[in-house]
Amino acid sequence: MNPESATTQELHEDDVSAIDELRKRYQELREELSRVIVGQDKVVEQLAICLFAQGHSLLMGVPGLAKTMLVRRLAETMSLSFSRIQFTPDLMPMDITGTDILQETHEGRREFEFVKGPVFANIVLADEINRAPSKTQAAMLEAMQEHRVTVVGRPYELTPPFFVLATQNPVEQEGTYPLPEAQLDRFMFLITVDYPSRSEEIEIARTTTGASLPQLGEIMDAETVLRFQSLVRRVPVPQHIYEYAVDLVRRTRPNVDESPDWLKPLVAWGAGPRAVQYLILGAKSHAALHGSYMARLDDVLAVAEPVLTHRILTNFNAESEGIRSNDVIRRLVEELNAEVSGKTRES
């Protein structure tokens, strides 16, 4: 019996059929979104991976690339509540979380009643999150990490599933409050939204300048999303995949022995243990979405860049040479894959 079949047997029979169902629903989701979103297949896949892995995403892209429409339509196909928060320098924490309002009761008494803010939704789009001051960002951070908010000392739980998509404009940085590394680390993925191709841009012009866009069908609901999120956690992972994820992350740190010599003068700070967790969770989610009954090396490689890009801080030496964190990740992956292949041939 090969190791793959042995690992597959660890899944319950119901989980095997559930993975088949998830793969089918995911394909239907992509087809439905393609009716209104032209291109951006990779972005859609990464959003789905992150959603079913119970993570949050940071979308980076210039204005006008349909980021808001994509997120809104994603919520529509899953019958999830959607809320958009436009972050501005004068945005206060209570504008996100909600606040106590003095109301008059039927008996004529006045009492404080909590009015929920826009964060109380299944999918929250935090538009240009780096334009709000740190105190407001911290309120959003608590919601992302704890799935609750605290108002006047009282906690309020958020209804699952809860998925935050924050956007940043990579061009205009004046008047912004850059997210600190500790807060960036809370995002599972950094998803880059690029310009469409020429043919895609022609199709965008054709489909968006005529009649109104079609209403999308409901592919799944909140209960189904929660069931699939639980399923992703149960996807088996072989021991060598855990080891690969740890080895890759450790090599991003310039102050450890495993780090290659070429990296040390280019990187100021590497990825922490949370990156390992998200590599594994992302691999599990990617595997399940594509109908695989266990996580493989290809699944880890599919999520390596969105997991690690915002967790590797390059220094001035790298910037002067035009080296970005993506370039560092690709070289690390190439070298580690070569080592793994060499060990496999030797054994």
Rank of each mutant, 00 (worst) to 15 (best):
I129H: 03
A205S: 13
Q215M: 08
E146M: 08
S320H: 11
V43L: 06
T136A: 13
N169Q: 08
N130D: 09
V303I: 09
A302V: 10
R234A: 01
V300L: 07
Q229A: 02
K264E: 07
T224D: 14
P178G: 13
P161R: 14
M220Y: 03
R253W: 00
P161A: 13
E10V: 11
T150I: 02
V38E: 13
H290Y: 06
L102K: 03
D95L: 02
I19V: 15
A222Q: 11
M140D: 06
A18E: 14
A304F: 03
L22N: 04
P260C: 02
T344H: 10
V119D: 08
G39S: 12
R234D: 06
R233I: 02
L216T: 14
D15T: 00
F187Y: 03
D327Q: 14
E142K: 03
P236E: 01
E201A: 02
V71D: 12
G98V: 00
N169D: 15
H56M: 05
R25A: 15
L281A: 15
K343L: 14
E128T: 12
A66H: 03
E181P: 09
L59W: 01
Q9H: 12
N169F: 01
N130C: 07
R23C: 04
P170H: 04
E321M: 11
I129T: 10
R25V: 14
H56C: 15
F52W: 04
Q229P: 01
V71P: 11
E321S: 12
G153S: 10
S134R: 13
E181I: 02
R25N: 10
V225S: 05
T252F: 00
D299Q: 13
T314Q: 07
P178Y: 03
L281Y: 10
R330G: 12
I191F: 00
L336F: 00
R30N: 11
P178F: 01
E76Q: 15
R345Y: 03
F163A: 10
L266F: 01
H12A: 15
L70H: 02
I101G: 02
R296A: 05
D185A: 07
F82Q: 09
R148L: 06
L297V: 07
